[in-house]
Design a protein around this nucleic acid. Structure first.
Ligand SMILES: NC(=O)c1ccc[n+]([C@@H]2O[C@H](COP(=O)([O-])OP(=O)(O)OC[C@H]3O[C@@H](n4cnc5c(N)ncnc54)[C@H](O)[C@@H]3O)[C@@H](O)[C@H]2O)c1
Ligand SMILES: NC(=O)c1ccc[n+]([C@@H]2O[C@H](COP(=O)([O-])OP(=O)(O)OC[C@H]3O[C@@H](n4cnc5c(N)ncnc54)[C@H](O)[C@@H]3O)[C@@H](O)[C@H]2O)c1
Lengths: 214, 214
DNA sequence: AACCTGTTGTGAAAGGTTTCACAACCAGAC
DNA sequence: GTCTGGTTGTGAAACCTTTCACAACAGGTT
């Protein structure tokens, strides 16, 4: 499979996630194959977009027939790297952090929360879904052996940067951040922000400027 | 202020949110003015981008000096429509829903949770931060008077579409959705998805395909 | 008042993404 | 074996976003 070396756009990667979910659903509905046309319709995209996205990674379809649902699903899982488990650590087990720990879907999908850190004495040592909360002071020590690959940051914005500096120093290359701020990290570290205020502000803009919506 | 009627891109709107937060921080640091150069540096953007984004809405700067921090902040708040309060309803007060209700920043910023709905008998009638949880059966009835402008959906994916159909029928035009699925709504309803699985999958892709990152 | 430094606002160029459009192909029918 | 309807994979075109580059200007200095 000779692949293009072109960089893949953020939108394409996001759409792969969308296809992945759609294909899982189609499998549940016992579809054997799906055309780009129908897949696009279900997810409010265009058929050309579906085909182009997939074509960056190979040719998985059959002309005249469409794509084999199960196979394409697996292929996308492979591309996204979710055909395996990832060891995740969580820093800050407050409102959001607790919600994440209780959420079974992530575990099911292979994102396994293995370690939890907090600085609250009442929380340190306590048990969350079988994981004992460690003292934040041990963060660097516990991350530097490379077992953990992804860290979720769910602490107040005021301390997020200090904690992230430690995370980066420990060699972590992927961070999911809930603090509403722009974390400073080296170029080889990928940070994704889950910024709910920003989405609410988007809705606010949308309601306020109906005519300017993209 | 003769404004271009061109549609504003999603990225520009998101960056306005970023500028807004940055300007708040600059205000705290007692800056009077800020140049596009410095603002860009702080947020890892380019000066040209900052200037172009703002230029869609007017000219707020002074050549040679930069932008007045406070004034620009207010102007952006006005553009985003966050110089006022918005009445929000929450559907589903489980793990995520509870976290949102306890989160004071949204209230502070003007997003006021006014009504909460659930279908769990143990939750209906109970009090969350001063708001009594209503029966989901009353959803349509309670939304249709127009008091509520934004609805946050934090119920399991299996029931999200049914609930959203009701929300749409009641005339709501803005929805923030936490269920990991593509909600079907008419074109005049804006839905923003807060899909954490997708962000984790992005990180997974990123770790798996270092060379293909955008 | 002329000059210098710094910065905006913005057309134009460059770069990136999406859509178009069609040759190439597959599977089933006849 | 050939035809037909349907669908992929992909260059090229259209469209959109970002970056460049500079005239226009503000404010301070000499
Ligand atoms: N709750 C929400 O709905 C919501 C929404 C949007 C964004 N956020 C953001 O998510 C983050 C977490 O929010 P939350 O509501 O869960 O807050 P929270 O206060 O409930 O939880 C924060 C947790 O971090 C811990 N913590 C504080 N300082 C620490 C440190 N130095 N080291 C280790 N742990 C520390 C606290 O003990 C607590 O358990 C915040 O940045 C918040 O702005 C939350
Ligand atoms: N918890 C997380 O960390 C997390 C992460 C990503 C996505 N999500 C998504 O967010 C949504 C909520 O997740 P959660 O963990 O809070 O789930 P949860 O089960 O804790 O909460 C769901 C709430 O919705 C209520 N509910 C169920 N059916 C209802 C109905 N028909 N009408 C009204 N209310 C109803 C339940 O009573 C419950 O209070 C889900 O779609 C989930 O996939 C959650």
């Amino acid at each position: 499979m000779a692949r293009s070396l072109r960089r893949i756009s953020e939108s394409t990667i996001h759409r792969l996630s969308i296809y992945y979910r759609a294909l899982n659903q189609l499998e549940r509905e016992n579809y054997e194959t799906i055309s780009s046309k129908e897949l696009a319709k279900r997810e409010k995209l265009t058929p050309a977009q579906v085909r182009k996205d997939l074509s960056f990674f190979g040719s998985f379809g059959t002309r005249g027939l469409g794509y084999p649902v199960g196979e394409l699903r697996n292929k996308i899982a492979e591309i996204l790297g979710i055909n395996r488990t990832w060891n995740v650590a969580l820093v800050g087990v407050g409102n959001i952090g607790s919600a994440l720990v209780s959420y079974k879907e992530f575990q099911k999908q292979g994102f396994k929360i293995k370690k939890i850190f907090d600085n609250d004495q009442r929380k340190i040592g306590s048990n969350h879904k079988g994981i004992v909360v460690s003292d934040i002071k041990k963060l660097f020590e516990e991350l530097k052996d490379g077992e953990i690959e992804i860290v979720v940051v769910a602490v107040p914005a005021t301390v997020a940067q200090i904690i992230v500096d430690d995370i980066v120093r420990a060699g972590i290359k992927a961070i999911l951040n809930f603090a509403p701020m722009n974390l400073k990290v080296p170029d080889d570290v990928e940070v994704r922000n889950e910024n709910m205020a920003m989405e609410l502000e988007y809705l606010s803009f949308s309601l306020s400027n109906d005519s300017l919506r993209p």
